[in-house]
Computed example of a mutant assay.
Amino acid sequence: MKNIAISFITINYNSSDFTIELLKSIQKHTTIPYEVIIVDNASRDDDFQNLNNYISDQEENIYLIQNRINSGFAAGNMLGVNYASGEYYFFINNDTTLLNDTATILKLHLDQHKNVALVTAQVNDETGNYASSHKLFPSLTKELLGNSIARKINKFPSNKTKLTTPTAVEVISGSCMFFKASVFCEIGGFDTNFFLYCEEEDISKRILLANEQIHFVPDAKIFHHSGGSTEKNLSILKEYYISYKHLIYKHFNLPTATFLLFLVLFKLFRRSFKNKQGIQLFLFALRGFPKKESLRYKQTVKLNSSIP
Results as ranks from 00 to 15, higher is better:
M1K: 13
M1T: 11
I6S: 04
S7M: 13
I11S: 00
N12H: 07
N14V: 05
S15M: 08
I20S: 02
I20K: 02
E21Y: 03
E21G: 01
E21T: 02
Y34V: 00
A42S: 15
D45C: 08
D46Y: 10
Y54S: 11
Y54R: 08
I69H: 08
A74C: 13
A74G: 09
M78H: 11
L79P: 10
L79F: 07
N82T: 05
E87F: 03
Y88C: 06
I92L: 05
N94M: 02
N94W: 02
T97L: 09
N100L: 04
T104Y: 08
I105L: 07
I105N: 03
L108H: 09
H109F: 14
Q112M: 10
K114G: 15
K114M: 15
N115D: 15
N115W: 13
A117P: 15
A117L: 13
L118Q: 14
L118E: 12
V119H: 15
A121F: 13
Q122S: 15
V123N: 14
V123E: 13
E126A: 10
G128F: 11
N129T: 14
S132W: 12
L136F: 11
K142E: 11
L145K: 06
R151V: 06
K152R: 07
P157C: 03
T161P: 06
L163Q: 04
L163H: 06
T164A: 05
P166K: 04
T167Y: 01
A168M: 02
I172F: 05
K180M: 03
A181M: 05
V183S: 11
C185G: 09
E186C: 10
I187A: 07
F190D: 00
D191E: 02
E199I: 09
D202P: 15
S204V: 15
K205M: 14
K205S: 15
A210Q: 13
N211M: 08
N211Y: 12
F216E: 13
D219T: 12
H224I: 09
S226I: 06
S226D: 08
S226Q: 08
G228L: 01
T230R: 08
L234S: 01
L237H: 08
H246D: 03
H246S: 10
H246A: 02
H251W: 11
F252H: 10
L254E: 14
P255S: 14
L260N: 03
L263Y: 11
L265Y: 12
F266M: 06
L268E: 07
S272C: 12
L283K: 12
A285I: 03
L286A: 01
K291M: 03
K292N: 02
S294P: 02
R296I: 00
R296A: 00
K298T: 01
T300P: 01
V301G: 00
N304Y: 01
N304W: 01
S305L: 01
S306A: 03
